[in-house]
Amino acid sequence: MSLNKNTNGYIFGFALLVILVCGVLLAAVSGALSEKQQMERELERKKFILQSSLGDEISGMTKQDIAALYEKRVEEMVLDSNGKAIDGVSVNQVVLGKEYKKLEKNGTIKKGENIQLPIYLVKAENSEDVQYYVMPMFGFGLWDNIWGYAALKSDLNTLQGVVLDHKGETPGLGARITEQKVQSRYQGKTVADESGAIVSVKMEKGEGNDYSNKPHSVDGMSGATLTAVGVNNMMENYLRLYGPYIESAKQNK
């Protein structure tokens, strides 16, 4: 090495070179992978939608099968707050977290905001009839955001199933909302009372109780009451937001 390594020129040159090499490398990697990443994110959404509505049917399916099934059975729509479809907006353009920010604490839409609500219609096999209505939900648990999908049967009242996910609930307590055992408690519950008004389904306090006679209650998770409150608020808020659509879809039957 005849170069003096401690001159400023050498140090700057060296730093610049390292930055350049690292930058080019990173740009190449991220450019090459961005499409695949986007696909993975979409695939997760599709999987959640199918899982909430079709349940066990998709267990064990490969990624390609899930994508193909989704393509075949699911119709996507974006609704406004009146339950009318908005033309020219694809569900991919709607970011649930951003839409959630347009809500007040009590779940009503902030003044002057236009909310966009994606909805997914799962068709019956080999037919054009809608079998399940899948609605995304978004909210706040104990620590951080929670989200999920609720699938209503074609009577627009009975829950076919839910999928819940979270960002930072307590492991072993609130984080149990991702367990199938907890999510399956929602199956068969109804979201509207006899008059047809939306009452949502509540996760009750305490665990191990039998709620099979109560159509609007499910068993809770012990030690995770506050996460359950978050889930309850989320579900009630979003069922109300989708209320106008549910009403009009019922009348069109």
Binding site: L33, K36, Q37, E40
Partner: peptide, 15 residues
Amino acid sequence: SLVAIVDQVLQAYAY
């Protein structure tokens, strides 16, 4: 940089 590469790869192949 290496970690960023790992992160990108994980996001693409083990989401």
